[in-house]
Write a protein that binds this DNA or RNA. Structure first.
Length: 528
RNA sequence: GGCGCUAUCGUCUAGGGGUUAGGACGGGUGGUUCUCAGCCAUCAAACCGGGGUUCGAAUCCCCGUAGCGCUACCA
């Protein structure tokens, strides 16, 4: 039975690199009919657990990465919170000490550090002298009588090598002597990560440990612990890092400001921020970032697009397949095809996936994705009346592939506003209405045509405009750009005739009148 | 400092003793449209360096170099 796991710390946000690791674990479990376990690494019990965990679970749910055991899904191997498994760790520590694979040690951190520095100065590898090792009760009492605090250290072998097979990197060999006598239990009785991780993996019957490359060098000490406890070893697979955009450095959640200097990242972040602002959300910059899953959820990306992009970060099927449905990726996934070198996360490539996935949806589906954004912005009541829904679908259809993420609907907010509330892009207003001397006259003339136009459709408006420009002997561009600004407030947008048809005769006339009034001396040109 | 992992276009990658080194993103140019987006066509762009093995190396081996990781009473 294949059983894989992902063990996030409750940090308050789900990081894109972590999701990639979780995804590969999930895919591997699903591929082999196994189970995917979510285990919460909450040994630092400093913050409010629920508050710190919720965004992580929400992110996984949104992405469709479901867990078979973990928070909210009880199984035979719980509890799934490390903070509640202390008894198992203590048991393991005792067993290791009893078996002579670990020992109580009473050296102060300063004493150990001094040895470490001496070794470095001599350009030797550091090997602890075990000067304060206490392997008998008498020795323990003696050292404790000196007022020393004890920890438990691993008694690592000092000869030979640790060999294991990594499913991605092949045969590995590490000199045992390079390993430290790592502390597994602190003076206060709490246990450290490596011990807890090995114990939990065993008790949760994890068959494949699939994790990031940073743990490759940690594997020997974990194997030592597992063997000391008499556990069967899981299979290991060490994934390449997810690196920063445009670099080979490990992606870190701490360095948002640095990523924002990268042009591609900045662009995506800026786009997301504009959507958040249109929604009136005040987002904390440290979590509203393109390295955090929440960013994509809030700006209206499709989970399938994000998952697809993440899939290709360190894995490829062949020389051309890029688009995978969830089932296709489950069927195709294998550890053998995971690459060994770090992959840097490219938000522009994700954007391209998003664009493709969005365009593959029907108008009704895209409208469904977009509607919550208009509601959140206060532009559409919830539930929306039938007429508003028709307008929404018409806008979505006309906008076509201009709506890449669902939040892009807010670019078309003007269609959902009162005429009197329509904001103008001042530069466009200046260029298309104020500066061309004939603009006001042409617009006024065409307004009267529209006022009597029947029926009022995209085709009839186009016909009317063609007739009008022919009569006046002007080019179509002399009217159309001015009209666009008058109707939508913007200099760019989708087809103008479609825009007019969506607004309808009354609103078109009203918006033209408002723009014309604004053109007159003293006509609301303040701030221009 | 020690130990380890890694190295193909700017980015993600395919290939893996003989290839015009393939695809995608991004970029350039031309076309189409009322603007924008798109779409179509087209172009540029890579095997880290040095040695070896071999008839032949980007591919195998060694050495460098670089990046990253581990070297914590962090995870």
């Amino acid at each position: 039975m294949v059983r894989t796991r992902f063990a996030p710390s409750p940090t308050g946000y789900l990081h894109i690199g972590g999701v990639r690791t979780a995804l590969f674990n999930w895919l591997f479990a699903r591929r082999h009919g196994g189970r995917f376990i979510l285990r919460i690494d909450d040994t630092d019990q400093e913050r409010n657990l629920d508050e710190a965990l919720e965004p992580i679970l929400r992110g996984f749910r949104w992405l469709g990465i479901d867990w078979d055991e973990g928070p909210g899904v009880e199984g035979a191997h719980g509890p799934y919170f490390q903070s509640r498994r202390g008894n198992l760790y203590q048991e393991a520590v005792d067993k290791l000490v009893e078996a002579g694979q670990a020992y109580h040690d009473y050296a102060t951190p300063e004493e150990v550090q001094a040895e470490r520095e001496a070794a470095q100065a001599a350009k030797r590898r550091f090997v602890y002298s075990r000067r304060c090792m206490a392997d008998t009760p008498e020795r323990r009492r003696e050292l404790e009588a000196q007022g020393r605090q004890g920890v438990v250290r691993l008694k690592m072998p000092r000869d030979g090598a640790c060999r294991f097979t990594d499913a991605i990197r092949g045969e590995m060999a590490f000199e045992w002597a390079a390993e430290q006598d790592h502390v597994i239990q602190r003076a206060d009785g709490s246990c450290l990560y490596h011990l807890a991780s090995v114990v939990d993996d065993h008790h949760m019957a994890i068959s494949h440990v699939i994790r990031a490359e940073e743990h490759l060098s940690n594997t020997p000490r974990q194997i030592f612990i597992a063997r000391g406890l008499g556990y069967d070893l899981p299979a290991y697979a060490h994934l390449p890092f997810v690196a920063e955009p445009g670099s080979r450095t490990k992606l870190s959640k701490r360095k948002l400001d640095k990523y924002l200097k990268h042009a591609d990242f900045a662009r995506v972040a800026e786009h997301g921020r504009a959507i958040a602002e249109a929604l009136g959300l005040s987002m904390a910059p440290e979590t509203f970032s393109p390295v955090v899953v929440d960013f994509y959820q809030r700006t209206g990306y499709l989970p399938d697009a994000l998952v697809n992009a993440l899939l290709l970060l360190g894995w490829a099927l062949d020389d051309r397949t890029e688009i995978f449905t969830r089932q296709e990726m489950i069927d195709a996934f294998s550890l053998e095809r995971v690459s060994k070198s770090p992959a840097s996360f490219d938000p522009r490539k994700l954007w391209a996936f998003q664009s493709r996935y969005m365009q593959a949806l029907s108008v009704a589906e895209r409208a469904n994705h977009a509607r919550p954004f208009l509601e959140a912005a206060g532009l559409l009541p919830s539930p929306a009346p039938a007429e508003a829904r028709r307008t929404l679908e018409a806008v979505v259809e006309a906008a076509g592939d201009r709506i890449v993420v669902a939040g892009d609907i807010l670019e078309y907010a003007g269609f959902f506003m009162e005429d009197a509330a329509l904001p103008y892009d001042e530069k466009a207003f200046e260029k298309r209405l104020r500066r061309p001397p004939e603009a006001a006259d042409l617009l006024a003339g065409f307004r009267d045509r529209l006022a009597g136009l029947e029926p009022f459709t995209a085709a009839s408006v186009e016909e009317a405009l063609n007739a009008f420009t022919a009569e006046r002997g002007v080019k179509i561009g002399q009217v159309i750009h001015a009209l666009r600004v008058a109707l939508t407030g913007k200099g760019v947008g989708f087809g103008l005739f479609e825009a007019a048809a969506i607004l309808g005769r009354g609103r078109c006339v009203s918006r033209i009148d408002r723009a014309l009034a604004r053109l007159e001396p003293g006509g609301g040109s303040a701030g221009a």
